[in-house]
Amino acid sequence: MTMQIADSVSLSSPEAKARAHAAAARNNLRTEPKAVRIAIITLAILFLSVFVVLPLVLVFAQAFSKGILAYFDALAEPEALAAIKLTLLVAAISVVLNLVFGLVAAWAIAKFEFRGKTFLITLIDLPFSVSPVISGLVFVLLFGAQGYFGGWLRDHDIQILFAVPGIALATTFVTFPFVARALIPLMQEQGTQEEEAAISLGASGLQTFFRVTLPNIKWGVLYGVLLCNARAMGEFGAVSVVSGHIRGETNTMPLLVEILYNEYQFVAAFAIASLLAMLALITLIAKTILERHLDEGHDVNDH
């Protein structure tokens, strides 16, 4: 009771007013005036709606513009089914290859010191810095009829360009950095001490990898695989150059979307596009979940 009285007294005292004023001034330092805040937030929301949400909604609106039956008919077309199958196959091949390459590269870079390490790190980033069209052209130069291995391949009756191997190669090249990029900083941060501990406890190299290293980086691996997969399914430029656009055979989903669109088959084009958009949404959600796990994985032993 006395406390309350004392409180109310002190609140009205000039000293308390000064204190309240100081607190308000402190708050002002940390944040903008209300009007500015509202303006900035509105601007951000507007921008996001026009450039991100609206296109996404439009894709689905167009896909369903002739009704749900037309949508599923478009997806059931043999050409569409072939494209979906090819896309899944190519994505599976490049994800598996890049998982292995990425693990090996990240392992080498994070756990060992060797000459040319910086160069190797730069090289891993090359597919990101080169235009996908050029990545595709490289394979045409290598395996095309006029290319370095063209003659040899023709003699042995091996088809790489305008066939699944070419598409898989181009996709693998373009998506190479994802797994390695996701793992290198993670593995560097975790250091080599746990592996050293495992080996001094008598574990073999393989036991160390499967029991210590892999469990520590599993979320990072999943993260890299997820992004790698999303890009592999969505890749257009590099695949466009090497595919040859043979209908029902070498068209992936992004290529088919373009072809159908150019032929004014909007429902069919957007139906396929909606599948890719859905993949993007799933990827985003999975990515958010994985990032939470990745944060948990940090800073366990040290500090």
């Binding site: 001490q193 746990e194 050293e196 501990a197 495992a198 080996i199 001094s200 406890l201 008598g202 574990a203 073999s204 036991q207 029991r211 210590v212 469990p215 520590n216 994985g297 366990v300 032993n301 040290d302």
Partner: peptide
Amino acid sequence: RERHVGFVFQHYALFRHMSVFENVAFGLRV
């Protein structure tokens, strides 16, 4: 691996994804 030497690290180097029990059991399980 063959030297049979116990090593204790400054920053512990415990296996972060294993329970205390499994950490201690590691050398016996491998």
